[in-house]
């Protein structure tokens, strides 16, 4: 589903990713862990198409297509979703209006009929339950005045509505208390499926107690230095990144 080959990327002339390789197959959950500054968020942003990042080399194939050649909206339509580390507040645009536009753009791209107001409402009300959000969130401006936990739940809610093939979770656990973390993880687990893959980017092992990954990768200085199964995350938790840095 996603193939990253020797990806190199920089921001403001600082090279951050220095030859990253990764292969994600349908239905797999991959976790990427790493210390601060290792390039975790850069990877998420480059994959989502943020223009401030310069791709200096390598390639990314998404279902065989050149992902780096597409604008952010085209990546979303092809089935890529980024859950933002810092979701953006958009005063004056209601959650409902925003999502209706997004859903119908994506449906149109997939050759499906646009949802009318009634069908859309039925669908979103159902998905709200997944993250235990009240209906009143539909009528509030996107993320405006939301607490940190509400913003992250709103990201998972959007994921549930837009039904992507690959969801990149950029530090979705940061700033969440344990109750909010459980709700978010629970929502993600319900959305796991044979055709949907996840790339979970996190600094802490804690999230992986709730979202059990198939693979864990350790990112250090712009490269994946070690890959393993979920036990690698536990080892990191126990011994810290230093132990791995010594080993390599």
């Amino acid at each position: 589903m996603l193939t990253i080959k020797n990806l190199q990327a920089s921001i403001e002339d600082n090279q951050i990713l220095k030859g990253l390789n990764l292969e994600i197959k349908p239905g797999e959950v991959h976790a990427i862990m790493g210390p601060n500054g290792s390039g975790k968020s850069t990877l998420a942003n480059v994959l989502a198409g943020r223009e401030e990042y310069e791709v200096d080399g390598g390639e990314v194939l998404f279902d065989g297509e050149d992902l780096l050649d597409m604008g952010p909206e085209d990546r979303a339509r092809e089935g890529l979703f980024l859950a933002f580390q810092y979701p953006v507040e958009i005063p004056g645009v209601s959650n409902a209006n925003f999502l209706k536009h997004a859903v119908n753009e994506i449906r149109e791209h997939r050759g499906l009929e646009k949802l009318d107001a009634m069908d859309f409402l039925t669908m979103v009300k159902d998905r709200l339950k997944l993250v235990e959000m009240d209906q009143k969130f539909l009528h509030r401006s996107v993320n405006e005045g939301f607490s940190g936990g509400e913003k992250k739940r709103n990201e998972i809610f959007q994921l549930a509505v837009l039904e992507p093939k690959l969801a990149i979770m950029d530090e979705t656990d940061s700033g969440l208390d344990i109750d909010a973390l459980k709700i978010v993880a629970n929502g993600i687990n319900k959305l796991r499926g044979e055709d949907r893959s996840f790339l979970v980017i996190t600094h802490y092992q804690r999230l992986l107690n709730y979202i059990v990954p198939d693979y864990v990768h350790v990112l250090v200085d712009g490269q994946i230095v070690e890959s393993g199964d979920k036990s690698l995350a536990l080892e990191l938790e126990k011994n810290g990144y230093d132990a791995i840095l010594e080993r390599i």
């Binding site: 989502a48 223009e51 952010p72 979303a76 953006v88 958009i90 004056g92 925003f98 401006s141």
Partner: peptide, 29 residues
């Protein structure tokens, strides 16, 4: 707001529509 524009585009909304949504948000009151 460039951040808001990127957020909308990352959900599949094309640039020109994202522009009008944000302009509408500005003008709606």
């Amino acid at each position: 707001d460039e951040e808001a524009l990127f957020y909308l585009r990352s959900r599949g909304i094309p640039r020109d529509k994202a522009h009008s949504l944000l302009q509408y948000a500005f003008a709606s009151d």
